[in-house]
Nucleic acid binder design. Structure first.
Lengths: 249, 249
DNA sequence: TCCTTCGCTTGATCTGCATCAAGGCCGATC
DNA sequence: GATCGGCCTTGATGCAGATCAAGCGAAGGA
């Protein structure tokens, strides 16, 4: 894995950009990369493992290399809301804050590329480029969070499910294309319960709505997790979005 | 109004910081301020006026000086979700994007301090300080958005109302203190319908829950908008938050 | 002065999703 | 191959909040 791959979220080459929807390519500046290279290290986690507990001291920032992680908030009585889904290339952690604000959990086996916070912050201070790139990424995440607020506040259960499926499909697209023209195939990286926590529903409702979408021919399932979308536009229509646009997760 | 006041959100003095919960004070750097001073201008809006429509070309970024604005998203069928509340010192607009992603509306009479985007971006490129400050503010907003996701996805109507009231109270605190020890007094800057759009409820439910909180002695009303909170902790308890902490709106 | 409008409240009813409960599928373990 | 536990589905029932509907009070305009 080349140096650039580890740092995709901070600076990557335009040529063979492996990251969709993050395609704000930065000029690769060799010395920045070299310096980042010096302060980075890798960590692996198993599926289900909690990476950071909300409130924990957090002395690194990181970017997801492979696998999927989630950010969740929990109320005292146990109600849970997922507030972020971290796919490869996504960034975790916040320069200038001591403790984590959310639980971060690996939902699949996961590899993260970590940077110790202190040196990372020092680099940021001396390298305007990085702060700007990070600002852009954060603004994208903010847009995604606000899109999600619309979903949580106003969409029906069916629309919520369709939205989630189309988001996952979009992030996966290009990797896996279905056999039939225009069809899309992917594996759900989340359990029904995790989907429920993301969508502000119960797992029973998630299950029922998936069954309903299947009955109506919007999706097909193989097993519990393998999804086939014969007609992506039909799915998007179920999601109730006015634009097909910039969902970023 | 001194120069610093106009630029509170970008750089303000620590001494008499008028802004709560944004208190990450930056060193005032005279030349930055002078340059910002050259590219800024003011705009006033009347209550109810739409400042920007989603999709409009947006050639400025701005910071709220006085008054309150909202960010809302609307679905084709008219369902609306407010995704941000802009109080004095809050920042609107995003460097590096051509069009607005949300409707921005003045809910009270409003004055904004605008910076034409092009020169602002140029300044940002040459002044690392500003990008970093903006990054910090954006991260705060992201945290607030995620806190709001928990509210939208998992809280009951009563908890939603109590949360909103305590957020408004927190941002207003210091300006108005109630007569009785520990009591807080403020005016609601939003109509019931706007509150409903923020909370993912209907205006009827908002009205009912406010009545319920009043009946239970958690709040008192004078007229429709003037709120007295005799015991702030009691209100926070109704909000169901585990920490009394960093709600930022 | 009356009339209209806007923001709000309150009541009656409906419904989408939560809750409670039972059982099926499948991979892991012995 | 039997058993267990995690994950999922499906059914029955309940309830919080939506929807539909009526009316109030204050501000503003004719």
């Amino acid at each position: 894995m080349a140096i650039h791959h580890d740092l995709t979220s901070l600076a990557h080459e335009c040529a063979d950009c492996p990251i969709r929807h993050r395609a704000v390519c930065a000029r690769c500046e060799a010395d920045e990369l070299a310096r980042l290279e010096q302060i980075k290290y890798y960590r692996s986690y198993q599926a289900g493992q909690t990476i950071i507990w909300s409130g924990d001291r957090m002395d690194f920032v990181a970017s997801v290399v492979t696998g999927i992680a989630t950010l969740t908030q929990t109320m005292e009585d146990g109600r849970r809301q997922m507030v972020g889904l971290l796919l490869p290339s996504d960034f975790v952690g916040r320069p200038g804050r001591l403790t984590a604000a959310y639980d971060v959990t690996a939902t699949t086996d996961l590899v993260m590329c970590c940077f110790r916070k202190k040196p990372f912050e020092e680099m940021m201070a001396s390298t305007p480029h990085i702060a700007q790139r990070l600002l852009e990424m954060t603004l994208d995440e903010l847009d995604a969070a606000r899109e999600w607020m619309l979903l949580l506040g106003r969409k029906t259960a069916r629309e919520k499910i369709a939205s989630l499926l189309s988001i996952i499909a979009r992030r996966d697209v290009g990797l896996k294309k279905g056999p039939a023209q225009g069809s899309i195939v992917f594996d759900l990286p989340l359990t029904r319960e995790e989907m429920a926590d993301y969508l502000g529903l119960t797992l029973e409702t998630v299950s029922r709505q998936i069954s309903a979408l299947k009955k109506d021919g919007v999706i097909e399932l193989e097993g519990k997790r393998h999804i086939i979308v014969p007609n992506f536009d039909a799915l998007v229509e179920q999601a109730g979005d006015d634009n097909d646009g910039g969902f970023l997760v």
